[in-house]
Design a protein around this nucleic acid. Structure first.
Length: 471
DNA sequence: CCTTGCGGGTGGA
DNA sequence: TCCACCCGCAAGG
């Protein structure tokens, strides 16, 4: 469909013929139309830690990205992964979260704010219109992915369990043990995620080698795998699934963009290579810039998924960005698709590396305003999602996903139950890799674009995220 | 205890 | 006007 609409349009396309599958990690200037039956969309879920932002417009729900919480020491977890916690959405909880230390090295935790939208946090807009839920994202995340919501929840519950149960027996093992687990799991996950779609064996191999960093993508299937998973998976899957298709056609795909934080921190980059960095880097992610080089690729992590998923081609596309201002609306959607990145790369602020200059001038202007639209009632009737049903479509994809996952992954992983969820999480994002070949391609292109970053991505792929707060 | 939404209100552009 | 953001409230898990 043509992305001719803008979230602020008085009139949105009526009765869209086709709905997009849920995307857990939308990135870039994306516009999607979900079915009002899509639970995840209904809940305005996102893998990114998005907090509600008051835009004084009850028709449009606006959310802004909180970034990601990482170890200030940029330590590498045992699995080679990095800690990438999901920032607590609640201000108070976030403050508390930041007072905790890295479960792995005890360094302070650092919140990397999102500045992917012209120096401001990436914003997501949700608007219910009839049977469709319109979603529009503005900005490109310039930081690693945090844990997905499910992963975070899973972790939390896992920790609780441990605490409660294990308490008696051995009390304090927690840190290491936990960490270890997490690592494992996470790393797996990370890999898994990437691989998610692949077959078991392949996955494994892949994993080992390249773990792109997809930080977190998946929604763990923890709890109700069905629900989330389905949806999420679908998302991921979709991507994957789409990927084949998407690669070309899909407009909404995102692109990976450059510079991100990750690179900024060497640590992130190649965990393996830079192990030493831990401490040094700590405070100065920026310095790390050397990485910047990577900068362009930065987000690779994130991007990966995407890239994989969607990508192959996207990258190649041309940069639409030049325009900016006016074109906006329609452009946006497309941009993503098309744009390769010039925009990203350039523009994107790798804050770390370059500084935050927002190259993308156009964006803002264009973007903006959510504020006022008064159209139909946005307020969704909540409640609806009862459907565990999830979209059939999604399910399908899921199903296969799930299967794969469970089977393969798990077996491989030793993870405990707790982590089981994780696996689920793994599923989607990476999935992008529907076809093996693609991944490769995309990777390359990707990397290419990224430059250095790649390495990072690979190693990093899995960042662990977990917070173990108390220890 | 945390998430999610809502909405009043502020300050800067 | 637009927008980011702070703050509190309420519902729900």
């Amino acid at each position: 469909m043509k992305l001719t609409w803008d979230i602020n349009d008085p009139k949105l396309p009526q009765e869209p013929k086709h709905f997009d599958s849920f995307q857990e990690w939308p990135d870039g200037y994306v516009r999607l139309v979900y079915s009002s039956e899509e639970k995840n969309a209904e809940r305005h879920l996102s893998g990114w830690a998005m907090r509600n932002t008051n835009n004084h417009n009850c028709q449009i729900l606006k959310k802004s990205c909180l970034g990601v919480v990482v170890c200030a020491g940029r330590c590498v977890l045992p699995g080679g992964v990095r800690l990438q916690l999901r920032p607590a959405i609640c201000d108070k909880a976030r403050q508390k979260q930041q007072k905790k230390t890295c479960p792995n090295c005890n360094s302070a935790l650092e919140l990397i704010p999102c500045r992917g939208h012209s120096g401001y946090p990436v914003t997501n807009f949700w608007r219910l219109d009839g049977k469709a839920i319109f979603f529009q994202a503005k900005g490109v995340h310039d930081h690693p992915r945090p844990e997905s919501k499910l992963e975070a929840e899973a972790r939390r519950s896992a920790i609780k369990k441990q605490v409660s149960s294990s308490h008696h027996s051995q009390k304090k093992r927690p840190l290491n043990s936990e960490v270890g687990r997490y690592h494992n799991s996470s790393s797996y996950i990370g890999n898994m995620q990437n691989l998610s779609c692949l077959e078991g064996p392949e996955r494994v191999s892949i994993i080992t080698d390249a773990s792109f960093s997809v930080p977190a993508q998946s929604y763990p299937s923890l709890q109700n795998p069905d629900l989330y998973k389905a949806s999420y998976d679908s998302a991921s899957c979709q991507e994957d699934q789409l990927s084949p298709c998407q690669k070309c056609p899909n407009p909404r795909i995102y692109m990976p963009r450059p510079c991100s934080y990750e690179f900024g921190a060497p640590a992130f980059i190649s965990s393996s290579s830079y192990p030493a960095f831990y401490k040094d880097m700590t405070s100065t992610p920026v310095d790390t810039d050397p990485v910047n080089l990577n900068g362009p690729q930065c987000n690779s992590v994130t991007a990966h998924d995407k890239s994989f998923n969607n990508t192959g081609r996207h990258y190649a596309l041309k940069p639409v960005w030049g325009k900016a201002g006016s074109g906006d609306r329609s452009d946006y959607g497309q941009i993503q698709t098309n744009t390769n990145h010039p925009y990203y790369s350039g523009e994107y602020p790798c804050r770390y590396g370059n500084g935050a200059s927002p190259l993308a001038p156009p964006l803002q202007t264009v973007i903006t305003t959510t504020t006022k639209v008064s159209y139909q009632a946005y307020k969704p009737s909540v409640g609806k999602y009862s459907d565990n049903l999830c979209d059939v479509k999604n399910l399908q994809s899921y199903t296969h996903m799930a299967e794969n996952v469970s089977g393969t992954i798990y077996s491989g992983m030793k993870i405990q139950e707790d982590f089981g969820m994780i696996k689920s999480a793994l599923l989607y994002q990476h999935d992008p890799v529907p076809t093996k070949s693609e991944p490769v391609e995309s990777m390359e292109s990707y990397r290419y674009g990224q430059l250095l970053g790649n390495s990072y991505a690979e190693h990093e792929g899995q960042a662990l995220r977990f917070e173990s707060s108390e220890y």
